[in-house]
Write a protein that binds this DNA or RNA. Sequence first.
DNA 1: TTTTGAGTTGTTCGA
DNA 2: GTCGAACAACTCAAA
Length: 483
Amino acid sequence: MDDVHHRDKAPIIVWFRKDLRTDDHRALASAAETGRPVIPLYIREDQAEAGPLGEAQAWWLHHSLTSLADRIEKLGSHLILRSGDAETVLQKLVQASGATAIFWNRRYDPVGIAIDKPLKETLSSDALEVVSFSGALLHEPSRVKTKTGGPYKVYTPFWRAVEAGGEPPEPVDAPKVLEAPARFPSSEALADWGLLPKRDWAADFAERWEPGETSAREKLEDFTESTIDGYRASRERTWEAGTSRLSPHLAMGEISPARIWHATRGLSKADTADVITFRKELVWREFAYHLLFHNPDMPTESLNRKYDKLGWTKGDKDFDRWTKGLTGFPIVDAGMRELWRYGTMHNRVRMIVGSFLVKDLLIDWRRGERWFRDTLVDADPASNAMNWQWVAGCGADASPFFRVFNPITQGEKFDTDGLYVREHVPELAELPSKWIHHPFDAPAAVLAKAGVKLGDTYPEPIVDHAKARDRALAAYRNIKDAA
DNA sequence: TTTTGAGTTGTTCGA
DNA sequence: GTCGAACAACTCAAA
């Protein structure tokens, strides 16, 4: 066997990260196309995130990797698992396998960029080809620019620019088959990684979620076929499954945004308000990465620094009650308990609990951001940071300071009959709808009949909302004057 | 350079 | 019950 021939048949390592799919995976598709053996690899990196991977998402990752390994097996190859520092792992694997190329899809969070950029330089040589591909976003972040060449800070013009910029690239199908190398390098065992929680607090996650790209594609199909009809209104109804529920799949890269985008484009109803509203949501994710790309410290620093002077309270006790869903405001508690139990929260309720933490309790948005990162299965460094900054008023295109959500009004508006509260706060289930969002105002007889003892079976409210609102407005006015 | 119009998701108050 | 205005400027993006 001569050298050239040998090189032609040398394996390609395809390094999977938060792109745990075979569909629309350019690195994998390009590797498969060469006809050379493919070694699919996942590295449990020492530090690939801003902070450790949240526990809820660790649960998801475990199942997602299981699902990906299955798919790859069916294609004729075998997913290799390794842990450690990416460079060391890759160097070793190149040596052990005789691979002459490494392919991966780019990531756009600051920690990922800080790892990948120098890595590409270090690894690339005459003997080793390192190629990166797009696919995590609809468009490369550097592609969307204002007329003066800068990044956008306001969503609407960003959306218009995305619309005017033409369609994102068509997704590429999963390879039909992967060539196996003569010998697979050794793999660690997923079970040894300890991604599943020791205590089985995630038992209920499986009721709501099925990680993996097969499930993601099914969800997309169901959604575009039926749920999307009426989406503009139904996505606001907390008691209904009116949203796509694709976010955790997107967060782990089990489905690509381009796949979703083009699925909505291909519909006969592609230009209805419902479908456009949904595509806008997809572009919000894009906008979050655009912001993060241009403001790498967005997860930890207020984009508008003057908000650091706001004098956030530490509020440890309040924070603790917020995380446990024991604030005494039913819609807030329902949301926080949904989050704990299912690793998710209805989008509308995320705003309500966020506003409550930041404005009613005056607690630093970063604490909320961290809690969400640890408990959400769809935790995403870009979206999470952007949205917390939005609600706190310090971010891009932020919520105006005087916009303080009223947890009672919001409950009545978006959980009209209290079905959402009844599901997640069962001790209030027997209350009539009239009182379910403010049991503290209910007549004693009504509470007694529903078996509710305030301060006993369900907490008294931890703040007086009207007073808390005034306090927040004063604090926000203050920094305006200070600045 | 200056100007202009606009900006995810709300609430309260008074007529 | 319903409706419009006030809430507070400020900054962004494009012309």
